[in-house]
Design a binder for these strands. Sequence first.
DNA 1: TCTGGGGTCCTAGGACCC
DNA 2: TCTGGGGTCCTAGGACCC
Length: 357
Amino acid sequence: MDLTPWVLHVDLDQFIAAVEVLRRPELAGKPLIIGGRGDPTERAVVSTASYEAREFGVGSGMPLRIAARKVPDAVILPVDAEAYLAKSDEVMTILRAQPGARVQVLGWDEAFVGILTANPESVARQLQQAVLGGTGLHCSVGIGDTLIRAKVATGFGKPRGVFRLTAENWFAVMGDRPTVALWGVGTKIARRLAGCGITTVAELATADPDILAAEFGPRMGPWFAQLGRGDGTRIVDDTPWVARGHSRETTFQQDLTDPAQVEEAVRELVDRVLEDVSAEGRPVIGLTLKVRYAPFMTKTFAKKIPPVTEREVVLARALELAAKREPGRPIRLLGLRAEMPMPDDARDGHTPTRGGW
DNA sequence: TCTGGGGTCCTAGGACCC
DNA sequence: TCTGGGGTCCTAGGACCC
């Protein structure tokens, strides 16, 4: 037996839509859009669309209003975060129950599974069967010799499939694709890379490290080159997640103009944020207030503060931040983020990634 | 017809200190 | 009169992901 450490990336297919169909089987096969409070006349965006709705060009992040216009027959449902979290927990429990599996959760609907095996495809199929049998949900599995390759592989397995991406076939599969196909490269970075003459994954992999460092800095430069090669850690880290902070945001259906309204909104944000923070018993050591005046105009105000737990003190600090806004300008969104102190041992050793593990 | 809400990490530039 | 060099911390903003 030739046992090798493999990384499997498990990604549930159209997760949110699938959970809704489980609850309401009559929705199966219909174009389904989940977003906001389920009211397409409100300011909100699409969280997930079923494959049937995606046929019409609807995708996550699209304004609900526009999505509803594209698919007049769509069933539009409100986001039910608690239901998705509960289903997600079921899935993760099943994954952890697999013999020898180490599980690193990435989000509601995806996780890395590290496992020692001679046949990763067979393990992948087992995982799919276990998840389907236990929850009724289908998933795709990417197999890789690094986390990055496993994550990227999943896209080629969707839906309900399995795909393997390793050092052997990385360049054959990914080399000619645009850099934006990589996990962690969005449209902005892709454009800056193109400005350096780098448009494909293969070009990024062999790019001059000095040029990348000059353009993106000492950490991100080397990181992007590594990304182009698919290289990186193969260690699935199952240490429990410690949140760096918590935030709450509110988009107002009608812009706020009255200062008293703004103060009331800040008050409410503080209370909502503190619900999460105090549940963990950690003090607040920093606040960031986000103010959106118009669709493309957002300002943030940040302040480090001595560790504090009292609501009244946090509120006073938040109001100080709010006082820095442009007075009299209509506000479309307010957000408040509270930072919390990290245990010393949870700080270090992280590979630079954004919004990831 | 006009962009949610929850996260993470990186970088530039200024303040401040020695 | 003129402004080094190194370090840290903080703020503001950018980018990405699900």
